[in-house]
Amino acid sequence: MSGFDWQFFLEVLIGGLLSGVMYSLVAIGFVLIYKTSGVLNFAQGAMLLFAALTFVSLVERGVPFALALIITFAVMVAIGIAIERVVLRPLTNRPPMTLFMATLGLSYVLEGAAQLLWGTQVHGLNLGIDDVPFEVGGIFISQFDFFAAAVAAALVLSLSIFFRYARVGLAFRAVADDQFAALAVGLRLPRIWATVWAVAGLVALVAGLLWGARLGVQFSLSLVVLKALPVLVLGGFDSVPGAIVGGLIIGASEKLAEVYIGEYFGGGIESWFAYVVALAFLLIRPSGIFGQKLVERV
């Protein structure tokens, strides 16, 4: 019974953490929108699908990689701004739950439109990274996972820096803290919201490419959003560090559970395990990892 394979455990753990970064990436897109407009944007997954599908279809039609990237980015920015204009602005001052349901409707529109436009078949997406594992101290790590995690980490980092230091970033935080105060000091909210949605489009693009390269570009890509939701419940909808740490926790615990206890359940537990982890955690700490606890006012 001395045979606990630590090396194998570490391998699983690292694999889990790396895929956790991918969850964080999607979750960050949510946090960005939630912090600034108070909307839980369920359409994030559909945006991701739309971006990946557009990019792949362009490349398949012979558009050079870089150009396809630029075009897709432009399309995503346009979609982001259009969403803000057409859907969210008429719903200003409505309850947050109404806005959420609107994004639910939005995700239907985007999923339908993406597939109507580009078809429903599965596309492979090659980002030019070989998925050959490399070895560090006897532990094998997937090269692609590592690359994806690095890109995701870079994006997360630059967004955090953007949030913290740039002028627009400061405005974001002002809006996130208090919309009325932000209005009072003359910040132009619609412009900021449009920017936020454009940035969310960028996040969707990056996440779409990374996830698309791993899973293939197809409808189920939009279900990645369901992986991000428990991360958000765990880390708090309004916390960037929460999204990062939450993603790592979910990623690691999911992989470990699948490998070590999955067999007792007959496998396939990844569809709900993350939710159970998040719920169990929340029963102990209702405000999540970093989310601040709001004082109840009556």
Partner: peptide
Amino acid sequence: LPSLRLKGFYLAVSTLAAQFFVQWALTKF
């Protein structure tokens, strides 16, 4: 039961647990 501690979006998301767990259990067993 989570509704006793969670509100709003947190609760909405936690109800997805029912969706996935039940569907998994019915398929698996």
